[in-house]
Simulated assay, not measured.
Amino acid sequence: MGSIAEYIPSETRLFKPLKIGQCTLQHRIAFPPLTRLRNDDDHVPLPLMEKYYADRGSTPGTLVIAEATAISHGEEGDWNNPGLVSDKQVEGWRKIIKAVHANKSIFFQQIWAMGRASRPDLLSQRGFPYRSSSAVPMKGSEHVPRPMTEEEILETITSFVETAQRAILAGADGVEIHSAHGYLLDQFLTASVNQRTDKWGGSIENRARLTLEVVKAVVQAVGAERVAIRLSPYAGFQGSEKADFLPLYTYLIDELKKMNVQFAYLSLVEATGDPGALIWNDKNIHQGKSLNFILESWDNLSPVIVAGGYTPESAAWAVEDKYGKWDTIVAFGRHFISNPDLVFKIRNDIPLTPYNRPTFYNVKEWSGYNDYPFSQEFLESHSDAVHPMTKEEGNGVDIY
C-alpha cells in the first residue's frame, strides 16, 4: 500500500466521472447527510437551506445528499430536524432540490426513522409514542421506549415508501435509506437493543428483516437505480455496537445482492467515522477495522461511498490505493460545511477554511451555516454558481 503523500488529488480518480443510478458524477467527492437543525419549528426547511445546499453543489456533477429526513411526523424526533411529509415540507425540499439542480449537481434525499434516538419529551408533547425495536433505553436515560407492534412495523415500511415517492416527486434523483448510527432501522439490527422474540428479532436473519423489507419496498416503488443504502458496521454511537458485525453485515450484503438489481450506491461509514468517536471521543471497540470484507463481497455491484474523517490527500490515496479495486466515492462532512467550494479547492490545491464545530447545530441560524466564504478564485470563475441570498432573505434567525 502506497503513501498518502504520493498522490496529488487533482491527478487521481478523485476527479474521474462515475455513474450512480441514472446520473453521472463529474468527480468522486460527495457532500454527505449532515444534521444541521436549520428547519423551522414545524420541521419545514427554512429558505436559508436553499443557499446552503446549492452552494455545496456549486461544482457541476457533485453528489449532494440531504440531511436525514423523517418519514412521518412521529419520527420527527428532535427539534428543528426535517420531515418530508406535509405539503409545506415537500415544497421546501422542492425548492432546495431545484437550487441544487440549477448548478447541474445531483441530489439524493436521505430518509430515516429515529426510534429511541428521538426526544421523548418532544414526542409526548406532540402526542406520539416513544418506541423502538424493544424496551431498551438509551444509555443514561430514564425513558424506556415501548416495543413496536407488528402493525407499527408494517406502517414504518409504508412510510419509507411514501416518503421516497414524495422525494422523487419533489425532484430528487434518488433516496438514501438510513440504516446506521443507532437510529430505528439500526436499532432492529443491533442485538443489544433488539430483544424481540418474533420474526423481527433474535437471529441475524430476523434482525436484518426490517432493513431488507424497507429496501425491497422502496426499490419496488421508485426503482433500484434511485435507491441507496447507508450502513455503519463499526459505529458505537447511541448504543449501536455490534459484536456480530461480520456475520450480520455479510448477511445483509448477500441479501441485497440476491435482489438482483442495480442500486445507485452503497454508503459505508468507517470506524473512524463513528459520530461518537468524532464528536465525544467515545471509545469504539472496532477502531482500526477495515470495510474490505463488505467491498470484496459487493464487488462493484454499484459505487460505494466511504466516510471517515478524510482530507484531500487521504481521499486521493483512498480512491487510488486503499480502495483502488472498487468504484469509490469519498464523503467530506466537516470540511464541506466550512468550504462551500470544497471540490474546486481540492482540484486547485487551495487551502481549506477551518470549520467551527460549536456552530454546527445553531438552531435556525445563518451563522455557522451560510457565512463561510467562497475562495476568491472560485468567485472569479464561477460567479453564476453562487446562490444569491442575504441573511434576511434566508430567514436566518439569531437565537443565541
Rank of each mutant, 00 (worst) to 15 (best):
A235S: 15
F332Q: 03
E225K: 13
F374W: 07
E205Y: 09
S105K: 07
R207V: 02
V193Y: 05
P275S: 10
A66W: 02
L184W: 01
Q238I: 10
V64H: 01
P312W: 09
E377A: 15
M49V: 04
Q110V: 03
Y251R: 00
N103P: 11
H143C: 11
Y372F: 15
E11R: 14
T311G: 12
I350A: 08
L295S: 09
S159A: 12
S124L: 14
V175R: 00
H335G: 00
L123Q: 07
L210T: 03
F374N: 14
P340R: 07
D299R: 10
P17V: 04
I168W: 06
L231T: 08
G171N: 10
P82D: 11
Y355H: 13
H73S: 12
T12R: 11
P33K: 10
T359N: 12
L295I: 05
E50H: 13
A228Y: 09
E50T: 13
K16M: 11
I106G: 02
Y361G: 10
I97Q: 04
T156G: 08
E296H: 12
L185A: 01
N281P: 00
G273N: 07
V215S: 04
Q220L: 08
V306C: 12
R116N: 11
H286K: 15
V386D: 02
R119S: 15
L84P: 06
P82Q: 08
F237Q: 06
S232V: 02
T359A: 07
G288V: 06
F374Q: 14
W298Q: 09
D321H: 12
A54H: 02
Y310H: 13
F188C: 02
E162R: 15
K283E: 15
V214K: 02
A172S: 12
V319D: 07
A208W: 05
W366H: 06
A191N: 11
G83Q: 03
E67I: 03
G77H: 07
A70S: 13
N348C: 09
A235T: 15
V44N: 11
L46I: 10
E313N: 11
L248S: 10
S375F: 09
G174N: 06
S133I: 01
L185V: 00
R347M: 09
R119I: 13
H73P: 00
R94L: 01
P129H: 09
C23S: 13
V222E: 13
Q165K: 14
R230M: 09
M49I: 07
E152P: 04
R126S: 01
N339W: 05
I285F: 04
A117G: 05
L301P: 00
A217Y: 06
L169K: 15
M389Y: 03
F128H: 11
A228S: 14
D371V: 08
L295G: 04
L48V: 01
E155A: 15
